[in-house]
Design a protein around this nucleic acid. Structure first.
Lengths: 339, 339
DNA sequence: GGCTAGAATGAAATCGATTCCATATGGAAC
DNA sequence: GTTCCATATGGAATCGATTTCATTCTAGCC
């Protein structure tokens, strides 16, 4: 592998001049610029980013830590991050924590060692120690999707209002007994969605039946189990609110296995839309989060921080969710489960 | 940020001794080991991997270049890679080429500059220049999923046999006119699947009607358009073979929009299974590829190459696909489209 | 003509680790 | 008692770039 010294020798200049040509910095005459470019091409030279990063103390790399890469929601976010970052000459290292605090700690440590210039982090739990560690090291962080009890830049969606809208939509359709299939209490979005649910019911003057509220995790298995447990109730609800896309799919499965039709026997609404490429026929009424935009916005904010935008206090960007009404909530024509 | 020198000073030893403690290499007395560990903890020291990599010429990092991260197939592969790599202390940088040769070149160049120890690469096209470049630099590469006309380690699935099995399955069910919804001719898997299709028909003595063969790309839009075009034929086929999961979804949509039922009016088989977390009710007969295993096997092979396993000639690992028969091909009970 | 500023270039130090080589000690082997 | 080797430790060079500082040359200006 040729180095900057090889290029310098071949072009008959000093290494520092080669560096100037590569980075288009400082003064270089047109003449030597051409000679250096030729030498680079002839040797097939590529700069060593380790050396560059070591000296210049910036790696042009961001660390993106998400909780579940198999969820299309996060791959879409990652896309947004990737596009925004590469537009500014930054690359992204993607890490997956599986919602595990231990894995998160491990990856954050690794990314710090790799000297990333900034972090985009989806907190696995409400534990803020990883975020605190990064900030201690003076590395900018933007928290994605969830909020934590810690002063840090955050870009997220308005889960509370999204949930409120969904539940209000069900209430307007006449439902009074609405079950909530929730996520882990350690995750802020799960909590916000419960809050929105409660507020919608409260404002409508519908008493809250705690027996209709379940909390597990953002998985299909969770959704399936919670739905089964709900269906065992003597006084069944008429509608279900699944607080995440995987939970919703689990719910659909459980309803189908119980021989119930959506929305005829049970209405269903969910959070997060699935990419249209993955779905034959979208039928689920959802509060859709702008995943791509969330990733892009968070990255823009992070890059501004890295470049030192002078702003001191943490900002919180809250993006709106969009209520997308489809068949599963029971508006208009009714159709069988599984359609 | 404390450095190894700070730790050394605090522990009253030389930097090289600290290095020995960190890497558990060379001789260090129990006594100093403890002192160094304490100093590390007190300072909150973390090694700088840029410096380490620069000197030691290994970064413990693999580059994974895939064609479409929004396809669950690839996220599953990435999972396999990730798990196998982290088991050996390696981390993975994931890049997405969108099937674009230009992006692939760009990312391969970037990863080389970042001095990754090895590449896992899904070739965007049949252009081998990126692979050649990497090999010139003496960086090990394993090609994933697709094969190229170039001597390089490859781990892939047997697309030809998978396609053969699917088409044979349709033939056994009595179908004689089977259309093929294909991918880009520049992608080997797309080609292999056509080959398997042709062989199955040939062996069954069924004449091949070129009018039933379409080629576009691995997208839902492609599947939709190809299906529409097939449906316009005066002499319609009775079955469709979609050579990828997105194409299959596009086909399902097109059939539904045309008011056709699967499998009653048209049988359908596809390639690649969708993760069960994403599907309400799996109904598509598919040739499933062991995505996770493919990623893991490829990583094991790559790591062996990196550690210099002495083997000189490129190997090709071909994993079997599994035929999963479900309702869409028309075995047993028949059900409406979209179920 | 002398002074200044911009243009062009390079020497040397530096980033933070590892590698290579040297040195010292203590006990085992002969 | 010497030799040898495993154990323990450190000094200095090194990886490949960038940064800092210095130097030279030329053109413009008063």
């Amino acid at each position: 592998m040729p180095t900057i010294y090889d290029v310098a020798r071949r072009a008959g200049v000093a290494p520092v001049t080669v560096s100037r040509v590569i980075n288009e910095s400082g003064y270089v005459s047109e003449d030597t610029r051409i000679r250096v470019r030729e030498a680079i091409a002839e040797l097939g030279y590529t700069p060593n980013r380790l050396a560059r990063g070591l000296r210049s103390k910036q790696t042009q790399t961001l660390g993106l830590v998400v909780t579940d890469i198999t969820n299309p929601f996060w791959t879409t976010v990652a896309r947004g991050v990737e596009d925004a970052a590469s537009g500014h000459g930054f690359s992204v290292i993607l890490c997956n924590t599986d919602e595990s605090e231990a894995k998160q700690q491990q990856y954050v440590g690794l990314l710090l060692e790799k000297q990333v210039d900034g972090f985009l982090l989806v907190p696995a739990t409400d534990d803020v120690s990883a975020i605190a560690l990064v900030q201690e090291r003076d590395v900018p962080v933007v928290v994605l999707d969830r909020h934590v009890a810690f002063p840090v830049d955050t870009v997220r969606c308005d889960s509370e209002v999204g949930a409120y809208d969904l539940v209000t939509h069900l209430l307007e359709l006449g439902h009074r007994r609405i079950a909530l299939l929730g996520g882990s209490p350690a995750v802020s979005t799960a909590q916000d969605r419960i809050d929105g649910y409660r507020r919608a019911l409260a404002e409508a003057g519908v008493p809250i039946d705690e027996a209709l509220i379940r909390q597990r995790d953002y998985t299909q298995e969770g959704g399936y189990a919670m739905t089964q447990s709900i269906l065992k109730l003597p006084d069944r609800p008429t509608a279900l609110f699944a607080v995440n896309n995987f939970i919703a799919i689990g719910a659909v499965r459980a309803l189908r296995d119980a021989g119930l039709r959506i929305p005829d026997d049970m209405a269903l609404v969910g959070f997060d839309d699935l990419p249209s490429a993955l779905v034959v026929e979208p039928f689920l009424t959802v509060a859709a989060q702008p995943a791509y935009e969330m990733g892009a916005r968070a990255t823009d904010l992070l890059l501004a921080r890295i470049e030192g935008d002078g702003v001191e206090t943490p900002v919180e960007v809250v993006l709106p969710t969009e209520l997308i009404v489809r068949r599963s909530s029971g508006v208009g024509i009714t159709t069988p489960v599984g359609a």
